[in-house]
Write a protein that binds this DNA or RNA. Structure first.
Lengths: 342, 342
DNA sequence: CTGCATATCCAAAGCGCTTTGGGAGCGAAG
DNA sequence: CTTCGCTCCCAAAGCGCTTTGGATATGCAG
């Protein structure tokens, strides 16, 4: 069932039917109702490609998610982010097109998105320091918003980010207040902007209290469970083990916890842990009492807000760049306690 | 840069340029090269919508992923599955369109996919017992393949599944061989077909050795960390706690482990755990030595195989349904040991 | 009855591609 | 010198929609 058939059945022109369905005023309410009724009955909906060709808009948003270089790790937060964005797209009748790409090959995908007209805009994931994708997208002229920010990129662009620096400063101070003096950091890959900022936040916190920064208890790697285990294990086995560890992801934190307990220690008593928590739906941080003390911000909510921003930008290209900075909340759980007396 | 402009620049007709680029034999190699060269230089690629309109094919595959009813849980295996499928799509120049939908609203999405011509086919995720989506898709006439199977659905369709039943029978037997006589089950939601089959497999294993089935140590719920914690905790606190637990997901197993250790018990010594492991990239089951004894099958690989199947089916609609049954491998880790002597 | 808004509808062009149905041009065969 | 059969190319139709630029009808004032 297409427009032509539908209009023939109605004895109207395609023009009128199209206008009736799209809410244009040039058609009487009586005929509009007739048209809508028959359209429902035959559950007609316009062909996406034809509509797109005619209007020049794809009514789709692209997400290109890179799998990490070297390892084939898919960042688990994408699932929840995309769930949030998906709600918004569904409500606005936009499609979401996903492109999984090995880190580095993204340029091709963005260019193809533009020249083939596959999408009207993209959400940029996982910005790195000096991320080249931002100037690229600006050059290409494809509307975009960034989930995070990119230190070192000078031009203005729309982004939504969590105040990672502040979150980690607060977490560090929280641990210091508990009496901890030797605090480890298990971070994500530090060419990722979020990890870079968290590191700075952590260092800020230490410096503000006159504690020194010790690279021996600072790690940076892909945020997997086993990397958390390895990193924490090495720290704990070292000459001067930390009494507290700051971790960048709840998944890494699970590994950290495992390393602690494998050594017969108890998390929250012998070693304190504070983690960043993206509120992943299947890894909720405890039900009643949080397992981990955590700085938390919902990535799903970020998906909702950011996709709304992009849609707004697409419908009004002259809209100036937006910047949304979310503060993470610090919730106290069972994984932290006073520093053990030496 | 579009076909028209390109052909004018070349002094050729659109027909010839189109044919040159699409590899038709009616054009001489000399002109083909000229055309391809200029196309590269202006990095021309045909407009997706126009091409789609002309050919009647979308060159895109749809994935509709339901968020669980009630809870807003996004199954974490989608990330890895989609990464696998994405590789295949990229290699074949297909787009992937994702639709996140609240459980139950899927029919609308499938119908829209068909009537709007958004995609050429879909991959059906998370089949349930008597899943109504399978007859629906057959009625609609949208090519599809299923990740899993649906018990109770009589018609034939293409699927790829892990032999869940056998995997859980083997796991159960493995535990029995270790001397365990009281084995708990922490399963996914049992209207999900995979969970249903795992339960049967578990029961098969018990029955074959003359052990009785005790609903008191069988749970079924969304596979989150905290549900694993709660379920395991309740079992362990009961009158007759199990000495071993069979778990349906590595995430749930993490919760199970936490429940065990919270009670001052040691996993692998006091309580054995065998889990199903989807080989999630960020939750690898240990690096050298597996943490958990597990029945494992890579969901990423499933994504690759299944998307290939769908592409084959789309390019040859007369192809009879395929059925791929993968066997999970049982790897022994540190989470199991002989039953404690009573 | 005429003239002029106003309301309602329509024919046709155009979006960028593929594909059908030829049509030159040319060497070889008759 | 035809004619046939290739090879190489092209004009134009068509995919299903939106939208421009009218056309027709209706109502009301003059």
């Amino acid at each position: 069932m297409n427009l032509k058939e539908l209009s023939e059945k109605l004895g109207l022109s395609q023009t009128t039917v199209s206008r009736a369905l799209n809410g244009y005023p040039e058609v009487s309410e009586a005929t509009r109702e007739k048209v809508q009724l028959l359209a429902k009955r035959h559950n007609y909906s316009p062909n996406t490609r034809a509509k797109g060709l005619a209007t020049g808009r794809a009514h789709a948003i692209g997400h290109v998610i890179p799998t990490a270089r070297r390892h084939e790790v898919v960042n688990p937060i994408f699932g929840d982010f995309i769930a949030g964005a998906g709600e918004v797209y569904a409500a606005n009748n936009f499609d979401m097109v996903l492109s999984i790409v090995e880190g580095g090959d993204e340029e091709k995908v963005y260019r193809a998105f533009k020249t083939r007209g596959t999408v009207d805009g993209v959400i940029l994931h996982g910005p790195r320091i000096n991320d080249e994708r931002i100037p690229l997208l600006q050059e290409i002229g494809l509307p975009f918003v960034v989930h995070g920010r990119a230190s070192g990129v000078e031009t203005d662009y729309s982004w939504l980010d969590v105040n990672n620096r502040r979150a980690f400063t607060r977490a560090t101070e929280f641990l210091i207040d508990l009496g901890h003096r030797r605090i480890g950091l298990i971070n994500g890959l530090e060419d990722m902007d979020f990890a870079h900022r968290r590191k700075i936040g952590y260092e800020d916190g230490l410096k503000a209290r006159g504690l020194n920064i010790d690279p021996l208890i600072m790690r940076s790697d892909e945020m997997t469970e086993s990397n958390g285990y390895t990193a924490a294990g090495e720290m704990l086995d070292s000459e001067a083990p930390p009494t507290a560890i700051l971790v960048s992801s709840i998944i890494t934190a699970l590994g950290t916890r495992r390393a602690i307990e494998d050594r017969g220690l108890k998390m929250g008593r012998d070693v304190s842990v504070v983690t960043y928590d993206d509120s992943l739906s299947y890894l909720a941080n405890g039900i009643d009492v949080p397992i981990f003390t955590a700085t938390r911000s919902s990535v799903r909510d970020a998906g909702r807000q950011l996709s709304n921003l992009l849609l707004a930008k697409i419908s009004d290209p002259s809209r100036p760049p937006d910047h949304i900075l979310l503060e993470a909340e610090l919730t106290v759980g069972q994984s932290t306690g006073p520093a053990p007396s030496t």
